[in-house]
């Protein structure tokens, strides 16, 4: 896979690692929280999709209660990272359809439209008889059968492009979410270390609020991009479902003789 989705995936993975290391650090150094004597309270309202809905009121000393929430979010990100997909492969297939396949189909239509036209079809003048008439009647139907190919080819190509774009949009949002997550968790660590040395917990409260806000933003962003992707794929699915009935039932074939008598 060569798509930049792979780069985004790696980026998101690294950011998740950074966030997870920071959370682990906070967990291991939980006793530091108890030594900081600061009056600061924050309210956490976790996004519904990420964790059970509840209000948590925290003292700065209890800030480690945020850690399960962060772990859930990191776990969710890591799970989403594994969705993958291959936009480059989908786009290559789409280009084959909209390029070479479409050209071939149009080429036949153009060629046949001119050749079955009485003005151009060479055998119109020279080949006479009932069989020739029957042959020509059926031959004149062929351009329409061929034209029927053009819409499905275009639709499939458009759908492939759309899925590729949807996957990339999803990963852009996911990588952005992972970066935000890593940043706020690291900020929290920095604030706690600063508070432990400077004796003030204001920085922690601000950083903790940053974490809470970011968690909500990330959850909202991921829900939004997931919803857009889902709706887009439903639309794509509908377009494909409608293709089946758009194709003519069958190609009529001409009568075929068996050569000269006695051959």
């Amino acid at each position: 896979m060569t798509s930049y989705v792979n780069t985004l995936r790696q980026m998101a993975t690294i950011q998740c690692d950074i966030a997870e290391n920071a959370v682990n650090y906070l967990d291991k150094n939980a006793t530091v929280f108890a030594t900081i004597d600061v009056e600061a309270k924050i309210v956490v309202f976790p996004p519904l999709m990420l964790i059970r809905a509840q209000l948590i009121q925290l003292d700065v000393a209890e800030i480690r209660l945020l850690l399960p929430l962060l772990r859930e979010l990191i776990k969710f990100d890591r799970h989403a990272i594994e969705y993958m997909g291959d936009p480059d492969l989908l786009r290559a297939a789409a280009l084959e359809l909209s390029g070479a396949a479409q050209d071939s189909a149009r080429g036949i239509v153009t060629a046949l439209e001119s050749r079955v036209d009485p003005a151009y079809f060479r055998t119109y003048d020279s080949w006479q008889g009932e069989t020739a008439d029957a042959y020509r009647r059926i031959a004149e139907l062929q351009p329409e059968n061929l034209k029927a190919l053009l819409t499905p080819i275009n639709t499939i190509s458009d759908v492939l492009h759309s899925v590729a774009q949807g996957i990339e949009d999803f990963y852009v949002a996911l990588a952005g979410a992972a970066i935000s997550l890593a940043k706020v968790v690291v900020d929290l660590v920095v604030a706690i270390i600063g508070a432990a040395t400077a004796g003030t917990g204001i920085g922690i409260a601000i950083a903790a609020l940053g974490v809470v806000g970011a968690v909500m933003d990330i959850g909202t962003a991921l829900i939004a991009v997931g919803t857009v992707f889902l709706q887009s794929q439903h639309d794509n699915e509908d377009q494909l479902v409608k293709l089946g009935p758009s194709l003519p039932g069958e190609w009529r074939k001409p009568p075929v003789g068996d050569g000269p008598p006695g051959s």
Partner: peptide, 16 residues
Amino acid sequence: SAFSFIPGADGVYREL
């Protein structure tokens, strides 16, 4: 797998 395992992609793959 080219369509990803993001919810919704499987239906498109099936119809395609």
